[in-house]
Design a binder for these strands. Structure first.
Lengths: 251, 251
DNA sequence: CTTCAGTATATAACATGTTCTAGCCACACG
DNA sequence: CGTGTGGCTAGAACATGTTATATACTGAAG
């Protein structure tokens, strides 16, 4: 590698690192291309030369983290069905470690165009498919179903939940519970006799968690007062569908 | 209503109408707030006075259309399970009527914040719940499952598909097939003996449609040449996950 | 009819993503 | 050791969403 390219890679890393630092430090705002350039010690034109767009930079940042997650998934040792549930727990744990950071980057990346979907949907979903295949081979899932169609539908549910969380429509707990529920639900659809009981249990457990979360949030709302009885019922319904995090008071 | 408010409402309608016209005519671009103000014959400040933001205007536009859809859903006469499938077909038909328009407005509206989710997730998802309840009462779905949790998961699948379509990651046909598949899948998870066979059929049918679509797109790609055999397999997998519409040649 | 409050208007301004232009410097090659 | 060129830089410029300000109009109250 010529020293020219070395310098280029250096700058590339500087920029990605600066993006990471900015988002972790300042939360959503403060991450303008101008502040990024300043933080990285380069001109504003350079990120465009090296990456092409703001979104591409964020994709690069997220890509690093997803690689880590993928590695953790690979090292997972568990019963075939459990492994799937462990996989989504692992993801929740990752998001919980730096929620502000992930919220921002996921939000920004998924905004413009389908690149985010390509990223989580391309090679990465092969892991998901592998886990499903293993479960099928272990006789825990109906071998008749098309593995691709199923893998797509199930991963879509999870991605949708993550996106809602990133957009601030869900608390992390509810996102996790929804993932748990959704996964149990779709797996139950293709369960075999060997796994049906276990998935039933998983589903009930997730259901209970969700119901408790809803009750909790609803109670807080009711306690905070200010609602006529007619909207109360509608509110209860809406709460079940979307459970916005109440961040209005945080500066 | 005083003539003051009348004038205000008039302007409001003008703006919503102008937004509609602009998006139908020019496709995505051309819908800047400045061009909107010009088209509506008002100052650029007025839309902000009356709506507050660009997104709010687009929400108002979409809201009209969703109301229509809701009405069509209400008038649906079919077997309880069939009604659910008819519901998503109806949606596909609506999107197919003015694809460019819906693509733009859905994309723009879902971009910033969770307002779009609130819109489709609030009162509107009650209809969905009602259809599910009817099916349950008819003995076609397991009455043990929490209707809210299930309604959320299932509607999420569908919304996710629509969003992917709006972002250009899916053809309308594939979106429809995925909705069909996803709905059959989750319903199968809570089917009763009375409905299991029928849902099995639906699922197989959707599977077949999906597989055919994938084969078709894959064949086109292969025919177009330029791919070494090693990436061929990966491509096949990716194609199954995401099937981008190939619009590169349209201006 | 006068007056006044509310509201639209014109216009400027600001922040942001992105692009363009011109210059400049260091590295590779002769 | 020259020299030229690729690639970075500074900075301006542009389009866009949004906000602020000052002005003009207009319908309603006295």
């Amino acid at each position: 590698m010529s020293s020219r390219e070395a310098g280029k890679n250096q700058r590339r890393d500087d920029i990605v690192g600066a993006a990471r630092a900015l988002m972790q430090r300042t939360g959503d705002m403060g991450f303008s291309m101008r502040s990024l350039a300043e933080q990285a010690g380069v001109s504003i034109a350079t990120p465009y030369n090296l990456f092409g767009s703001k979104q591409a930079i964020l994709l690069a940042v997220l890509n690093d983290d997803l690689a880590e997650y993928q590695q953790a998934l690979d090292g997972l040792q568990a019963d075939e069905i459990e492994a799937l549930f462990e996989g989504i727990k692992l993801m929740s744990a990752m998001l919980a470690r730096e929620p502000e950071f992930y919220r921002n980057v996921i939000c920004a990346v998924s905004r413009d165009g389908p690149e985010f979907r390509y990223m989580v949907g391309g090679p990465r979903y092969l892991i998901w498919k592998r886990l499903l295949r293993q479960a099928t081979q272990a006789g825990l899932l109906d071998s008749q179903v098309d593995p691709d169609a199923f893998a797509i539908a199930s991963s879509q549910l999870i991605v949708a939940n993550v996106l809602e969380w990133a957009q601030g429509a869900l608390s992390l707990e509810e996102m996790t519970a929804r993932n748990h529920y959704g996964l149990a639900l779709v797996l139950r659809a293709i369960a075999t006799d060997a796994s049906r009981a276990k998935l039933e249990t998983q589903m009930r457990s997730a259901e209970a968690t969700l119901q408790q979360l809803w009750r909790q949030v609803l109670a807080e709302r009711l306690q905070r007062g200010e609602l006529d009885a007619e909207t109360r019922e509608l509110l209860a319904d809406q709460l079940k569908y979307l459970n916005p995090t109440n961040d209005e008071e945080t500066p």
